[in-house]
Amino acid sequence: MNFITIDKKDWAGGIDRSRKTYRVFGPVQDENGCQIKPLTPDLYPLMDAGVTVMSPKSVLFPQTEKMLTATLDASREDHHIMKPVEKDDTLRVVLGIRPYDARAILLVKLNFDNPDYQDPYWCDAYAATTFVGLGVNRPGPCDFSTSTGCGPFSEEGLDVLMADLDDRYLAKILTEKGETWAGACGFDTTADAAESQALFDILRKEAEKNITASVDTDQLSEKSILDLHEAPFWDDVAFSCINCGTCTYVCPTCWCFDIQDETKHKTAVRFRNWDSCMSPLFTHHASGHNPRESKVQRVRQRFMHKLKYFVDKYDQGIMCVGCGRCVASCPVNIDIREVCTIMNNHESK
């Protein structure tokens, strides 16, 4: 694995060089706080940003995305035949993605890229994207990523992991994609591998020390689904929930979506939108019947999916990377860490 040093004075110039081949995404401040967005030519990533309000999942899985289109004009030979919309599959790079968000992309990949079906929109976007991560030197108060199989300097899901060393970035090139990106930026100042790795280890240990929150997940896989589902604590967990769905939208691992059709003049478009298991409509049958009619059922579904069903189905740990966004954003202070602990410690009677 090779390391390179990037002088911060050269950073903007390198990004500009890469714009010839890459669409560049990164954290920027907008009216809603700090977000990962496409960077217009005058914009550079805010590398010292904290946790972005929304996760970068939208780079691969936009909040609303056109999938198919058809003409309804009966004079056209192909009328009412749905075809995929053209997608921009040029290379893109996400700068400053945090390790927990990179792991989240791998968890989401289990859904969109599985042995039975591959979602072409997500998979093509994933194939076109390079993830240039930045280690978290100063973890926030809600960060519990060290207990979710991740951590402030985790390399999983990244093509490059960088460390901020005040006047320079030290970058560990992890994949071929990462190497290509560094080449496109013209970053080629090699750093000593052993020395650099030692520096990364120091930074990682330092950062890990600052993460004080944690969750226990070791018992989850042994619990029975039905026992947890029927456990008496769900009423208490859900009591204050207002079903706003914020937790699902800010979550980097929530992947549920809705499919809707719209027509304009003679053109039909089928697109998908993020959906949320917090919404009663999510499971509402056309007959009026709703298997998750009550708030408690929906809150239970969210936690059971993340902390039990996913664990059983994929054997890859919990469907949570410990970014802490849902904890920070919940208007009624529901805390997944507490719920996880309750579930992990639950003993059936």
């Binding site: 859904n111 969109f112 599985n114 039975d116 079906y117 979602d119 689904i225 589902h229 992947w255 549920c256 979506f257 809705d258 499919i259 998908r272 959906d275 298991c277 999510f282 499971t283 298997p291 579904q301 059971m304 999916h305 039990k308 069903y309 996913f310 059983d312 189905k313």
Partner: peptide
């Protein structure tokens, strides 16, 4: 209909 959109689950 292909197991991706997430709404039709009964348990896992």
């Amino acid at each position: 209909g292909i197991g991706m959109c997430g709404r039709c689950n009964i348990g896992k």
